[in-house]
Structure formats: structure tokens, C-alpha cells
Design a protein around this nucleic acid. Sequence first.
DNA 1: CGTATCCCGGATATCTATTATCCGCGATGT
DNA 2: ACATCGCGGATAATAGATATCCGGGATACG
Lengths: 158, 158
Amino acid sequence: MKLSQGVEWGLHCTSLLAQAPADRPIRRDVLAGHYGLPDAYLAKHLQALTRAGVLHALPGPRGGYRLARSPERITVLDVVEAIEGSTSAFVCQEIRQRGTGAVSPDQCSNPCAIRSVMDQADAAWRDSLRGVTVADLVDRLPPGVRERNADLLAAAGG
Amino acid sequence: MKLSQGVEWGLHCTSLLAQAPADRPIRRDVLAGHYGLPDAYLAKHLQALTRAGVLHALPGPRGGYRLARSPERITVLDVVEAIEGSTSAFVCQEIRQRGTGAVSPDQCSNPCAIRSVMDQADAAWRDSLRGVTVADLVDRLPPGVRERNADLLAAAGG
DNA sequence: CGTATCCCGGATATCTATTATCCGCGATGT
DNA sequence: ACATCGCGGATAATAGATATCCGGGATACG
């Protein structure tokens, strides 16, 4: 079980966009260069974030990406689900209904206890991620980093 | 992000072993047949559970598997970590230290906020799984299933 | 003591998902 | 009109999960 690295990329990029002036979109290659990421592949994840309504993409010259809403209203879960999907990591294959010990379908109207437990843990995981916003992530940056990022983004935009 | 199906297999098998008489081990092919699983591949997961100290394997004729301790003392997390490992699903690649926006290593003595949030969510997931035992899973079986499993296991053992 | 049974560990093959890149298309601002 | 930039599809390469097989060692039974 491993999370896509796109989750890390997406969280860093949305955090960085939260530090940019709202009126000026950031180009994709600037985002990629800022973190040393492959530009073409990062595009896939940014597109996913755009489709999910987390980012807003502006085509054309002086185009780029900006947040679709304020950082206080974007949760970490929003970013994670945009990239990883919202389906539970545990996929129940109903093996209780297979083999010599197969339980009759009548007794399977309720999900089995194993599935319930795994789904409940998945919900706890998502609840935890829903409790943190992108604004919180920016607040927890080491001192000086925000200012430096603002300068770098301004230089790239000019 | 997907959990190995071995987790489902392991949880069902440990639950089934909890329903067997403690003095008689259950052969691997009986476990596989009970749920319609490939015997050879199930062996890999049962070996992992044995190495983790969840199951106890007895070689030789009349050998097989039994629980290494009482079902009340085996948590769902024990089984999950035996098969999936105990490392967090999120692997931080420290991209904050790469690219044009690289943060100096001096400022990276603390883990970044993104990693902290993901690790905290992972802890919440594990805490949830730690709160349920194999005995709880058996208690939540539909009425009649326990008795039928006991009969099947007795027939297979005789 | 010999033999049959059963688990262990390594080697191997297949399949799927992730990672990564490229190119044509459409949209936008100058 | 033209250059810039994001969108989406097609395509490889790589890693991990899935599945199988076989030799070796341990144990029970005759």
C-alpha cells in the first residue's frame, strides 16, 4: 500500500499557489522548477486538481494556475482525493461467499464485519485529512520561507 | 492507493482459526478451500502472519496453523501490519529541498507540515484498526455461521 | 528407523498500476 | 494572425502485486 507521489506534489503546489498573489496565475513550468519536478508529468496531476475544482487553469499567454478558492476553504483531503480518488483503499472481494464455507447471499445483506472495520478506519483517515486546510500548511512553514517564495514567484511572473 | 488483497485473506483466516478448537491446527489447504483461495499464494500471507507472531505453524502430519494467542489479544492492526507492513502509506520525498525553491537543510530539521499531517492521518487509521480485535470480528458474524464453520472445521480435521 | 505429510524460503513468471513523455487540439491575450 | 499555454489521448518503461513451483527441513506414525 503506497500513496501516489502526486499527492505530495499536489499538496506542495497548492501550498505554493496559496503564497502567490491571487491576481496572477503561475505557469506550470514555474511550479515544476520550484520543486525540481518533471514538468510533463506534473501536468497530469494539476489537471486532476483542476477537474476536481481545487485549482483553476487559465489558458493563453500569461496563463497558468491559481487556487479555485481561498486556502482556508481547501482541505488536505480535497487535494488527496483529487489525485488518489475517493474510493476506500480496502476493496472487499466478498470471499465469505466463495469456497466450501460460502455463506448464503441471504446472510450477506449487511456488509461483513471486516469490511465495516476497514471502512471505518478509512473514514478516520479521511476525517483527519479533512481537519487541515491548505492555509494551515502555509502557516506552519519555517520563518522566512514564505517571504522567499513570494520573491521567487514575483520574479518568475515578471 | 490500494491495500493488498492479502489483508482480506489474512483477516478472514485468522477469524476462522479463532472459531477452531485450540488444540487442533488447521491445514493450509483447508483454509484455502474454505474461502476458495489459491493455496500456493495464500501460503505467502500465512507465512507473513507467522513471522509476525500472529499465527503459529506446526509442521509434519496433523500439522497446520493455529492462533499464536487468544483472539481477544490479536488486533486487526496486527494482521494488517503483518501483511502490509508498518510503514506509512505516505512517503515524503523532501521535494522542499529540491528545485529553484529549495529550502536550506538547516530549516529542515523538523519534518515539513505536509508530512506531519499525512503521518497524523496514518496514525488515526492505525488507531482505528487497533481498537478492534479478532474476537470482535467473530462476535459480529451472522447467526448460525459460527456453528456451521465449527462443523466444517471438525469434518476437515477428522 | 523409514516414510508420508506439511510448512518454509527462494526463484520465477505474469499482470496491473504507477511513473513518465510526447504531440495535436483548442483557448486566450497581444 | 500569431505566439503562448493548458487539455486530453496515446504510448513506453518501471515497479509492485499476484500466482506458481520446487527443494529442504521438521514432525507424526507405523
